[in-house]
Design a protein around this nucleic acid. Structure first.
Lengths: 190, 190
DNA sequence: TTATTCACCGAATATATATTCAATATACAG
DNA sequence: CTGTATATTGAATATATATTCGGTGAATAA
């Protein structure tokens, strides 16, 4: 294996293991030595690649911000369908590519008090709830989404998804819900 | 103020402030000195009342276990109504008595890896998801709850509530959902 | 081939935070 | 009153964890 390949491989290894541990145990609860031990490498090597625990976290959040920016740009015809699609993708990804689910959880964690301010601010640039409230209003006009404060509806929807993802990250063996069940938070009953 | 009163008052003060900080910032992210500072007391005094940070946390979890045990014993006619009632209580409490909401979040946090094992085990004795799965099966037979794996339905419902409570603890100004919206995760559409 | 770079280790150090403790002041029992 | 118990403090200590650093051997460039 070439040097360059090895470097990239290690960096990925470290990032993904850190993601896993930060999400399941929390940022402060995860020791740098936990990450190193699980990967079977020395603590020193970790610092060779990332100058501090905080920088490592920052890298992950940056990655998350990128990912979210893209998914927000998905095209759609009708708001309820859009949410249905997003949900389907997310739930499918959650069982097949655990890191998608973990990234989702990480971004929410990073927005909370107790996280270094610089990182928190970056994470806060992603505001799913407000973004979706606009779409929900459109859906209400079209009659596909139920009546009610769009912000509260958006909040209910995303918090539910958040709760499900969080639990799934911690207890992967629990069966995931059908997208329809969650979509019914928004759907208008005729 | 009598000595006895003062003691009880301090203990409550400490417990509630610790609850607040553990929930908003997380257990490891909360320093003993944070709690002391916010209360305007010395760090030493905190250790006078609670022998360690872990014991303080344990006390809170014990309190939570008690509370949950009681709410599980509420009588009911029909499962969907039961969930509706629980939800209504919980959401009302969330806006009026923040500590109810915080306690709810704490119990979930305490079940995760990274928490001292003794405490984790205690928290795990409360298993809302499994308990509710039984009720959901009954509701399905009665035709009021939608078809699907009862465990997955229970999971979806409680994770949603969890997500909402968690977010509300961190961002109290965000409007809470109507109970009906969340209940529709379970409700059968005719 | 030889010099240089770099992945890697593990022990040493620095820092942050939990915990202890000796001293003080105040409530209370006698 | 007077002595004792206890609420309180702030500084000292212990502990846990992040971070640094000198050394080693393998890959790579010359």
């Amino acid at each position: 294996m070439t040097r360059k390949e090895q470097k990239e491989m290690r960096q990925k290894q470290i990032m993904f293991k850190a993601l896993e541990l930060f999400v399941t145990k929390g940022f402060a609860e995860t020791k740098i030595s936990d990450i190193a031990e699980e990967l079977g490498i020395s603590v020193g090597l970790l610092f060779h690649y990332y100058e501090s625990k905080e920088k490592l976290y920052l890298e992950l959040v940056k990655m998350g911000v990128e990912g979210t920016k893209n998914s927000e740009k998905l095209p759609f015809d009708e708001p309820l369908q859009y949410f249905g699609g997003v949900l389907e993708n997310l739930l499918a990804a959650a069982s097949e590519q655990p890191w998608v689910c973990m990234m989702f959880v990480l971004m929410a964690q990073a927005q909370r008090p107790g996280i270094p301010e610089e990182i928190r601010q970056l994470a806060l640039t992603v505001d799913q709830i407000r973004f979706s409230a606009g779409l929900i209003e459109q859906g209400q006009k079209l009659g596909t989404i139920r009546e009610g404060d769009p912000l509260a509806l958006s909040n209910a929807f995303w918090c539910s998804v958040q709760g499900i993802m969080e639990y799934h990250a911690a207890v992967p063996e629990m069966p995931l819900p059908e997208p329809e069940w969650i979509l019914d938070i928004l759907r208008r009953k005729d």
